[in-house]
Design a protein around this nucleic acid. Structure first.
Lengths: 153, 153
DNA sequence: TTTTAATTGCAAATCATTTGCAATTAATTG
DNA sequence: CAATTAATTGCAAATGATTTGCAATTAAAA
């Protein structure tokens, strides 16, 4: 379950400083480890596991436990979104300010390649499901799985 | 994350024997622990965790490791379907013969009550997603979360 | 009933994630 | 800029779910 992320895509420059601003706003310290973690998340568009983030950091830069703690905090602040691909490992993606980060992925079951999906579960159907069962504040967790072009060869 | 399953619903009688038949067909032994596990799954319509299954069994009836092994095997044979509610614990449901068991749930984030959902992600949209990305054999994992009627009070 | 391969119990091993705690440090204050 | 303080970190140990090695047991075939 891994694949080098050779995408040169980085998020808009502005974002990084806005991230530290957001942290400060919450009375949180901008520490070396945190800046480094945000930097890594910033350079990858795909969800990363804590272990992957740890591996990206210069050796000894930051403890794995610190990354776990940072992700918990960032998630609580809504700066990061947690994804579950069903393999028992949490993955995280930076969330653009003002957005809730809700979206889905298409994952290759052979090589774990991840594609971000624009589609979402139809809101009308979700509302109907909520109504029919008397539930409130209904959302969903949705991920697609299949075999990518490369792995079909 | 638990709730007594006070549903008297059991699956059609016929099923149980057909289950053992299926096992035999696969050159698998019908052992006490396995029969007991199938019996438990048979009496519950909601997904159960291995620990819950273990708790349902008469004390000392069967080791937890045996249940883990049995579920792995039953899943491979397609007799059981694994569900992931995102809380780090696997849940299983018996699959009706001839069916693939694909369906979804609506889970209360407060009391963990589970409702089985009839709706599914629209096939046309899924096909489009597969096509647009060149993926084959695409499926999805989908669960809904919200606050149930009881927990709204 | 014998033979044999599948299965089980039990303990130890894995893995991801969390946590206690003392040492370190960012940010504030004077 | 130095002192003060609460937040943060590293490290090791603790958790929890799940897996695995292995010797003893047992279902099913012969």
């Amino acid at each position: 379950m891994k694949k080098p992320c050779n995408c040169p895509h980085t998020h808009p420059k502005q974002e990084l400083s806005s991230l530290t601003t957001r942290l400060r706003r919450e009375a949180r310290k901008i520490t070396g480890p945190r800046a480094a973690i945000l930097e890594i998340l910033h350079q990858h568009r795909h969800p990363l596991t804590n272990k992957e983030i740890h591996a990206e950091l210069p050796k000894g830069e930051c403890d794995l436990a610190t990354i776990y703690r940072a992700m918990q905090m960032l998630e609580k602040l809504g700066m990061v979104k947690r994804f579950d691909f069903g393999d028992g490992v949490a993955r995280f993606e930076l969330v653009v300010e003002g957005d809730d980060g809700h979206h889905h992925h298409l994952i290759c079951t052979q090589c774990a390649q991840v594609v971000e999906i624009g589609e979402c579960f139809p809101a009308e159907i979700e509302h109907r499901i909520a109504r029919q069962n008397g539930f409130r504040a209904v959302t969903h967790r949705l991920e697609f799985f299949g075999v990518c072009p490369d792995c079909q060869k």
